[in-house]
Design a protein around this nucleic acid. Structure first.
Length: 576
RNA sequence: UGGGGUGUCGCCAAGUGGUAAGGCACAAGGUUUUGAUCCUUGCAUGCGUUGGUUCGAAUCCAGCCACCCCAGCCA
């Protein structure tokens, strides 16, 4: 199948979901002039994780699928929590995932001037007022879930007065919290977001993009809808908790002059009809055995429960990347999970399947012995050195071949030998035969043990007539991997497993610290990997019969490579 | 107890009045020089629940139940 065939097939089988259905309808009705323009709008206040990946894939893939555009916009309206470091890592993560945003990176902060003008417009039309209530007072006036709120005493300030006060807020005449700009909507609304929400607050604080130009900052609710409108976004996708904000999103946009919105928008000079963006909500991605809460992740880093934001056990994009997850596997996973409005918890197994599926197709095979047991092939002379040619992949010929040196002394994994094998054991036993992967069938003639009775070495004879052919007159079922003792390279291997041993480490009344899986990291210091691995162009491998591994980009050195286990192979042998 | 949402197989998820897609997981076979991959087969007389409308309901209507979100000058 060619690339384009598979693309076509993927499109044909792209699962139906309520957002695609909505877009299809919009396209049919011509609502946005046939345009599809989405955006991914993170606040640069932390590292991206698997949950963000779903949103990224959704927004960017939809744009691709409909030949539309997808912007990257930093929603940077609260400088107290944000930094350039996060801006940079987010951009890096999105590129790594394989997506390109439309045009330049956008910042809500670059619309601050326009946002200010629109606020003045709302004041002029009597839709906004400057309020002197403190945060605490405002809370009291807001009412409760079941009781209506009370109007602010400043609600009927004159337009002239509001204009003057707002200008002075901007000019820096007042301290933080002295005043706020509020929309004049309805203090009795059953939707608390509509009870005269704050549009601007005073914050004398440096902003990572705008420096010290501003001391008043617009709120999310006020900024997001206008930013969408300015960028000509058609479909503004966000998560479920913003559902109650949608009426406010619409209120703000509908109470501004459409022509003035259009005038400052990216569509100002286009031939398209100017249509306001619409918000649509979908359920967040949740994974069992996983925590994505910002506070929790930070604590785990700060308390040393993990080794940093890019610890391979972390659900961050940086962590998954270091773990060896491929961008395609994460994209496929997000696609397979679907998009719906029902809150759900996806099984980690689905993510693992996506990783295996991608790596199985693309990762070159190699051999690495994790827990070495010395085997001497007595049939060979001391200086025996045979260069065996092995293909890098059982099906994908384009991955090429490599040579694997075979010598008299090799190592195999300790778990591949049992003196008294359990029922069904297919590996090497005392007196039994086994195939060395890609090489000969050997027979274990002698088991050497130390004083404590531990097996230290196996003496085996080689059936020279079994290279590339089946042995005559008998069946040898088992195949085990091996590495030349002298030609192999010493390596450290890190075996990673899920961080938590319970399904819902973030649940109510659950302390995640008590749910940690004590075996989430196992360090193996004496591993031996075949030499070809170090010369490979790939950084992801399948170490045959062990799992998928990748070079650890941070801790590997020239003399001592470090490998991270990305994921084990499926293992249907219950005796293991 | 106000408002907004959601309930389809163990886990995701299609379905939009015509008789329950698909994936993961699981199980059983087959192929295999990876106990991998791959292939075949099985896996909801049932769609939160109770009624109603209809020739016919997961889909329409009503009631009930469960769970989630909202009272930041966070996003």
């Amino acid at each position: 199948m060619t690339a384009s065939d598979s693309d076509t097939k993927q499109q044909a089988t792209a699962p139906s979901n309520f957002i695609r259905n909505m877009i299809n309808q919009d396209l049919e009705s011509g609502k946005h002039g046939g345009r599809v323009h989405t955006r991914f709008p993170p606040e640069p206040n932390g590292y991206l994780h698997i949950g963000h990946a779903k949103s990224i894939c959704l927004n960017f893939s939809l744009a691709q699928e409909y030949q539309g555009q997808c912007n990257l916009r930093f929603d940077d309206t609260n400088p107290a929590k944000e930094s350039q470091e996060f801006v940079d890592s987010i951009k890096d993560n999105i590129r790594w995932l394989g997506f390109s945003w439309s045009g330049e990176v956008r910042y809500s902060s670059s619309y601050f001037d326009a946002l200010y003008d629109f606020a003045v417009q709302l004041i002029n039309s009597g839709k906004a007022y400057v309020c002197s209530l403190s945060a605490e007072q405002a809370r009291e006036f807001r009412g409760t879930l079941t009781e209506p709120g009370k109007n602010s005493p400043d609600r009927d300030r004159t337009i002239a007065e509001n204009l003057d006060l707002f200008a002075r807020m901007k000019a820096g005449e007042f301290p933080d919290g002295a005043y706020s700009l509020r929309a004049k909507i309805d203090m009795a609304s059953p939707n608390i977001n509509m009870r005269d929400p704050v549009l601007y607050r005073i914050r004398h604080i440096h902003h990572h993009q705008t420096g010290d130009k501003w001391c008043i900052y617009p709120t999310y609710d006020y900024t997001h809808c206008i930013s969408d409108a300015i960028e000509g976004i058609t479909h503004s996708l966000c998560t479920l908790e913003f559902e109650d904000h949608r009426p406010l999103y619409d209120w703000i946009l509908h109470n501004l002059e459409l022509s003035s919105l259009r005038a400052v928008s990216d569509l100002a000079d286009s031939q398209y009809d100017y249509v306001l963006p619409e918000q649509t909500e979908f359920a967040k991605l949740k994974l069992n055995y996983t925590v994505v809460g910002k506070r929790t992740l930070r604590e785990m880093v700060e308390e040393g429960i993990v080794d940093g934001w890019d610890d391979p056990r972390m659900p961050t994009l940086a962590g998954m990347r270091r773990r060896g997850f491929t961008p395609a596997s994460i994209r496929n996973f997000c696609e397979s999970v679907g998009v719906a409005r029902a809150e759900s918890v996806v099984d980690l197994g689905m993510l693992e399947h996506a990783i295996r599926d991608d790596l199985d197709k693309h990762a070159p095979r190699a051999m690495c012995v994790l827990n070495p047991l010395k085997v001497t092939l007595t049939t060979f002379a001391e200086d025996h050195l045979e260069e065996l040619t092995m293909s890098n992949h059982p099906k994908e010929e384009s991955l090429g071949e490599r040579t694997v040196p075979l010598t008299r002394e090799i190592v195999i994994d300790r778990s591949d030998f049992e003196e008294v094998p359990p029922p069904g054991f297919k590996r090497l036993t005392a007196g039994g035969e086994v195939r060395l992967r890609g090489a000969y069938v050997i027979r274990c003639d002698e088991v050497i043990k130390d004083a404590s009775g531990e097996v230290t070495e196996l003496l085996c004879s080689v059936d020279l007539d079994t290279l590339g052919k089946k042995p005559e007159g008998r069946k040898v079922k088992g195949v085990i991997h091996w590495v030349s003792a002298s030609q192999g390279v010493a390596a450290q291997v890190r075996l990673y497993d899920r961080l938590f041993s319970v399904e819902k480490p973030e649940g109510k009344d659950v302390d995640y610290r008590e749910c940690l899986n004590p075996d989430s990291l196992q360090l193996l210091e004496n591993c031996v990997v075949e030499p070809a691995v170090l010369k490979s162009a790939s950084s992801n491998f399948q170490f045959e019969r062990e799992g998928y591994f990748c070079f650890d980009a941070v801790d590997s050195t020239a003399e001592r490579p470090v490998f991270n286990r990305t994921i084990t192979l499926r293992d249907s042998w219950s005796g293991n």
